[in-house]
Nucleic acid binder design. Structure first.
Lengths: 101, 101
DNA sequence: AATATATTTCTAGTAATATCGAAATATATT
DNA sequence: AATATATTTCGATATTACTAGAAATATATT
């Protein structure tokens, strides 16, 4: 993953409401969670919630799909695991002190 | 880890310069990397670099220790792994579709 | 004590983000 | 077609963050 994309994604996770949304989605699994369910469990005005969801969508961490009147949000696990990998990449590669281990 | 602390930490990682600093430190290992080395490899004005480092310090992702004239920055691996764990916690716990697997 | 090196603090201008009510859109039901 | 439900877009205000030059601080060397 490119540094810029990773930074953008972390920035979106770096807000307590959005992080809460995303964790709710991660727990919810691949079938997704309706916006309305997020709204009632997070207790945030609809316009604010919509704003935060669309930011998560804009960086690829969430996708939405409609079924009838309800709109589902699904976390993108590949992007999530990519971010996690990005943080640990080459961890300690340049560490001194145990060069022959 | 609390939601608020995790969000703050992600917010600090959500800036390309800071993410680059942090990754440099993660690769560098536990002995730390001098500020000056960061400055020359990232090519950013000292005052700007200092500002970003102090933000990483303020959320506990980095600590500094001085040796003579040079100040070393060390990544806090425990906080890093805590963040990673936080993102995956209860992953898919509420997923439907494979309840007996 | 004077000078050099390493890094931070101060300051201030500019830009980006957060919030939420009101109005708008999309779909379903009657 | 009228109404209800679900969600978004618009708009405006308030707060926070980014950047970097200049000055200040801390330590080392001569």
């Amino acid at each position: 993953m490119l540094l810029e994309s990773a930074a953008k994604r972390f920035a979106e996770l770096g807000h307590s409401t959005r992080l809460e949304i995303f964790r709710h989605l991660v727990r919810g699994g691949r079938q997704g969670v309706p916006v309305g369910e997020l709204q009632s469990s997070l207790d945030v005005p609809g316009s604010t919630l919509s704003h935060h969801i669309s930011r998560l969508v804009s960086v690829g961490l969430v996708v939405q799909h409609r079924e009838g009147r309800t709109l589902y949000c699904r976390p993108q696990y590949d992007e999530l695991f990519g971010l996690i990998e990005f943080l640990q990449e080459e961890c300690c590669a340049n560490e001194r002190g145990h060069p022959q281990e």
